[in-house]
Design a protein around this nucleic acid. Structure first.
Lengths: 169, 169
DNA sequence: CCCTGTCTTCAGAAATTTCTGAACGTTCGC
DNA sequence: GCGAACGTTCAGAAATTTCTGAAGACAGGG
């Protein structure tokens, strides 16, 4: 189980990794706080305490995370404060979300194809377009496959496939 | 074919989209310049002219792109200047590259699992770990599939599958 | 009503990222 | 060698992003 300090440190490290993948700093820290909390849900105040930041920052982070579909409001019995919790499908959502930006890249490539005459440039743009088109078609299926596989192995808790290839080429 | 202005504009738009996916601004503009040029290769000077930026900026952008494996040196007959060109597999490379950051996220999740005792936090972290493990296993196969499909349809140039689903859910 | 606790907004401060320009190598032709 | 053309590095300027703190909106209790 290890101590509270280790937990905080692991959370910060995770937040850092998320920032590297493009998430805003404060939003990443907040998401990590949700992940690492044993509470069912957290309030803005909880987050401010945990992260030691201003209420304003928390407000912004919550807005961002909610907008991304990673957290949701959670109505709690007799509490006036607003509770939030991570959504079940948060991770698949982040992933798909990133692919909506891929969509923008694809559109740009297509506009490019229209803007140049035949030649090397057009060839390059066509290649690019094909790759991103491929991705846009395949990724949703990939995510779905994960969810099904997950649903299938409900019983065998606490494990899973658990393997990651060696260093990438 | 349309005019030179359209071409430049399309290039800038593409660069913008790449920035949104996390690429540095100048590197993105430079990559777009390579994409949209009908030349086989470009020199640092060409880029500086095309993008209207300082030699220093170009130098930095080239270093970045080369490091990412998106461009390579291209030795040209009797030219003293260094020529660069986009690598064939640039796009699959960017994609895989992004997934090396996914690897970092996964590591962070695993450290998290070790840092917390049984409970909700651990459950969330295990879920996260499983998803990213899945991705790390599947994505290389995905890229490979594209490359094979590509190699297969060498003949039917200028087209391809060409389809993109409606709005994502 | 007014007061208290909770959350949001926003202008400006702080931190970070990005670009430039000048100084410094290198290489090659002469 | 010397000069010119190219390219790189790096300190500081400029632009952008991110955070804060103070002011204010809103709901419910007293």
């Amino acid at each position: 189980m290890t101590g509270e300090t280790d937990r905080r440190e692991a959370a910060e490290r995770l937040a850092l990794a998320l920032v590297a993948v493009g998430m805003q700093r404060m939003a990443a820290r907040a998401l990590a706080a949700f992940l690492f909390s044993d509470e069912e849900s957290l309030t803005a105040g909880d987050l401010a305490d945990e992260l030691e930041v201003s209420a304003g920052s928390v407000s912004g982070a919550i807005r961002t995370l909610a907008q991304l579909g990673l957290i949701e409001r959670s109505f709690v019995a007799g509490s006036r404060r607003e509770h939030f919790r991570m959504r079940e499908n948060a991770w698949t959502t982040v992933y798909s979300r990133q692919h909506s930006m891929v969509d923008d890249v694809l559109s740009a490539a297509e506009k490019g194809v229209d803007a140049v005459g035949p030649g090397l440039a057009r060839d390059r743009l066509l290649y690019m377009r094909d790759f991103y088109t491929f991705l846009l078609n395949e990724v949703p299926a990939l995510v779905e496959r994960f969810e099904q596989q997950r649903a299938g192995s409900q019983r065998s808790r606490g494990s899973g496939s658990r393997r990651r290839g060696g260093p990438r080429p």
